[in-house]
Lab assay of single mutants.
Amino acid sequence: VQTVGQWLESIGLPQYENHLMANGFDNVQFMGSNVMEDQDLLEIGILNSGHRQRILQAIQLL
């Protein structure tokens, strides 16, 4: 089972590990259960829309 940090590294966005972990997104399986939306990522400080889309697309593959 991948950690959130390993998963972010695999999609090329390791800089957001602290954003996700500090806001309770600390379990890759949980994130894959379709609980995260674009607005959630924006609210936790991921401002780059391309990065948000990449995260959301990768979540669909979990």
Score class of each variant (00 low, 15 high):
1 V>L: 15
1 V>M: 06
1 V>S: 09
2 Q>L: 11
2 Q>C: 09
3 T>G: 08
3 T>A: 05
4 V>W: 04
4 V>H: 01
4 V>G: 03
4 V>Q: 01
4 V>P: 03
4 V>A: 03
5 G>A: 15
5 G>Q: 10
5 G>K: 15
6 Q>P: 02
6 Q>C: 08
6 Q>R: 08
6 Q>Y: 05
6 Q>W: 04
6 Q>L: 05
6 Q>I: 05
7 W>E: 01
7 W>H: 04
7 W>Y: 03
8 L>Q: 00
8 L>W: 02
10 S>G: 09
10 S>I: 06
10 S>K: 09
10 S>R: 08
11 I>G: 01
11 I>F: 06
11 I>Y: 01
11 I>T: 04
12 G>W: 00
12 G>Q: 05
13 L>S: 02
13 L>I: 04
13 L>P: 00
14 P>Q: 08
14 P>A: 08
14 P>F: 04
15 Q>F: 04
15 Q>H: 04
15 Q>C: 04
16 Y>C: 03
16 Y>M: 02
16 Y>I: 01
17 E>N: 05
17 E>F: 06
17 E>K: 11
17 E>S: 07
17 E>P: 01
18 N>S: 14
18 N>V: 12
18 N>F: 11
18 N>A: 13
18 N>L: 09
19 H>R: 10
19 H>N: 15
20 L>C: 05
20 L>R: 00
20 L>A: 00
20 L>G: 03
20 L>M: 14
21 M>I: 13
21 M>F: 05
21 M>W: 05
22 A>I: 08
22 A>N: 12
23 N>W: 07
24 G>R: 04
24 G>D: 04
24 G>L: 05
24 G>A: 05
25 F>C: 08
25 F>Q: 04
25 F>M: 11
25 F>I: 12
25 F>N: 04
26 D>I: 08
26 D>R: 12
26 D>H: 09
27 N>W: 06
28 V>Y: 06
29 Q>G: 13
29 Q>D: 14
29 Q>Y: 10
29 Q>M: 12
29 Q>S: 12
29 Q>I: 10
30 F>T: 15
31 M>I: 14
31 M>H: 06
32 G>I: 13
32 G>Q: 14
32 G>S: 14
32 G>H: 13
32 G>N: 12
34 N>P: 09
34 N>T: 15
34 N>W: 15
35 V>G: 15
35 V>T: 14
35 V>M: 13
36 M>Q: 10
36 M>N: 09
36 M>G: 06
36 M>T: 14
36 M>A: 09
36 M>I: 12
37 E>V: 11
37 E>M: 09
38 D>F: 01
38 D>C: 04
38 D>Y: 03
38 D>S: 07
38 D>Q: 06
38 D>M: 03
39 Q>R: 14
39 Q>N: 13
39 Q>F: 06
40 D>S: 09
40 D>N: 08
41 L>Q: 01
41 L>C: 00
41 L>F: 05
42 L>T: 09
42 L>A: 11
42 L>H: 07
42 L>C: 09
42 L>P: 02
42 L>V: 13
43 E>Q: 13
43 E>I: 05
44 I>V: 09
44 I>D: 02
44 I>R: 04
45 G>Y: 03
46 I>Q: 02
46 I>L: 02
47 L>T: 15
47 L>R: 12
47 L>Q: 15
47 L>N: 12
48 N>G: 02
48 N>S: 07
48 N>W: 00
48 N>H: 12
49 S>H: 14
49 S>M: 11
49 S>L: 10
50 G>C: 10
51 H>C: 01
51 H>I: 02
51 H>Y: 02
51 H>N: 01
51 H>E: 05
51 H>D: 07
52 R>M: 00
52 R>L: 01
52 R>Y: 00
52 R>N: 02
53 Q>W: 08
53 Q>E: 12
53 Q>D: 09
54 R>E: 07
54 R>P: 01
54 R>A: 07
55 I>N: 00
55 I>C: 00
56 L>D: 00
57 Q>E: 14
57 Q>P: 00
58 A>H: 08
58 A>C: 07
58 A>R: 04
58 A>E: 14
59 I>C: 12
59 I>P: 02
59 I>Q: 11
59 I>G: 06
59 I>W: 14
60 Q>H: 12
61 L>T: 13
61 L>C: 14
62 L>C: 07
62 L>P: 05
